[in-house]
């Protein structure tokens, strides 16, 4: 079993980068390099990470990285994988790293195509539940009720369930993670690297600028998202659904904290009424009943 002290000391995300203080995605990026080392080629579309990289001609990434258009992460990764195969460099992992807007809205066609072709790469969606670097507009991954600059009274629609959309492509590995549980995230990344085919990992990365909370609470909010059941840690391996710790202990409703604890810590949910919170709680409970059924099935999708 991996512990935090076993992780390498080398940093491939160099300090002095342009992320906001308390940035959740940069924690996830550091964990990505702790898990995979520097034998990776990254493909990054327009997203917060493009800003984190820094202004030309400097960058904070000590690994090869290709910037690409918003909608083309999957297609670019397919091209790089094909080039590596012809050059015989198959020990290099290609990682698509895109935000939630670049995955669930704009990039979904290229990603769906790459998954259908079975391109051998890891696609990671780091989800801060809005278009962060352009000034916080709503995305398909913004949850119900959340304030963004384009939903001033709170979003009226529910969040898209992207991991299950990807599982429906019958790819070998789909997982969800959160940087508040670093060992879980690192195990999933290392497992994904060993599997051949398209792997999809969806990481919930709290964002102090967009979610409106104190910068020191990033890890705490991620942990609360898992403990309240708003975000479940699971993996779908060859169609088989499995909850991972600590989510596997939360199937029973009494073990989960009320969602109000998670919502009240963020100012983006400040305007929610008790009826709204009850509605969200009901949806979360319904999701967990669904997960309970899925764990008993041989193939969940």
């Amino acid at each position: 079993m991996v512990t935090i002290k076993d992780l390498p000391k080398e940093e491939y995300l160099l300090k002095g980068h342009a992320a906001c203080a308390g940035c959740g995605p940069s924690i996830a990026l550091r964990l990505l390099f702790k898990a995979l080392g520097n034998k990776v080629i990254m493909v990054v579309p327009a997203c917060c990470t493009t800003v984190i990289q820094g202004p030309y001609p400097l960058t904070c990434f000590a690994v090869p990285l290709q910037n690409m258009l918003f909608e083309a992460t999957g297609a670019t990764a397919s091209g790089i994988v094909a080039a590596l195969r012809i050059k015989g460099l198959e020990d290099i992992t290609v990682v698509g790293w895109a935000g939630d807007g670049g995955t669930v809205d704009i990039g979904i066609q290229a990603l769906s195509g790459a998954a259908e072709r079975g391109t051998n790469f890891i696609y990671i969606c780091y989800d801060n539940e809005a278009y962060g670097n352009t000034g916080l507009q709503r995305s398909g991954a913004t949850p119900y009720g959340a304030w963004t600059t384009t939903t001033p009274k709170g979003k009226k629609e529910r969040k898209k369930d992207m991991p299950f959309i990807m599982a429906a492509h019958r790819i070998p590995y789909v997982a969800t993670a959160c940087p508040s549980y670093p060992i879980d995230l690192i195990n999933k990344l290392r497992k994904a690297r060993e599997i051949k085919g398209t792997k999809y990992i969806h990481i919930l990365t709290p964002c102090p600028t967009g979610w409106r909370y104190d910068t020191s609470k990033t890890i705490e909010i991620g942990r609360l998202a898992v403990q309240t059941g708003v975000w479940a840690l699971y993996e779908i391996e060859n169609g088989r659904f499995k909850l991972n710790p600590p989510s596997d202990r939360l199937v029973d409703k009494t073990k989960r904290k009320p969602v109000k604890e998670y919502l009240s810590m963020q100012e983006r949910f400040r305007h929610l009424t008790d009826a709204d919170i009850e509605k969200i709680q009901k949806w979360v409970d319904e999701d967990w009943e669904f997960y309970r059924t899925l764990t008993t099935l041989e193939r969940c999708i």
């Binding site: 160099l14 002095g16 980068h17 342009a18 990289q53 202004p55 030309y56 400097l58 960058t59 904070c60």
Partner: peptide, 18 residues
Amino acid sequence: TPLSLPTIGSMGKTGTWR
């Protein structure tokens, strides 16, 4: 081809933000 090179402090001394 525009190519950025890895640098510590690509955004300057970010400690001044503190």
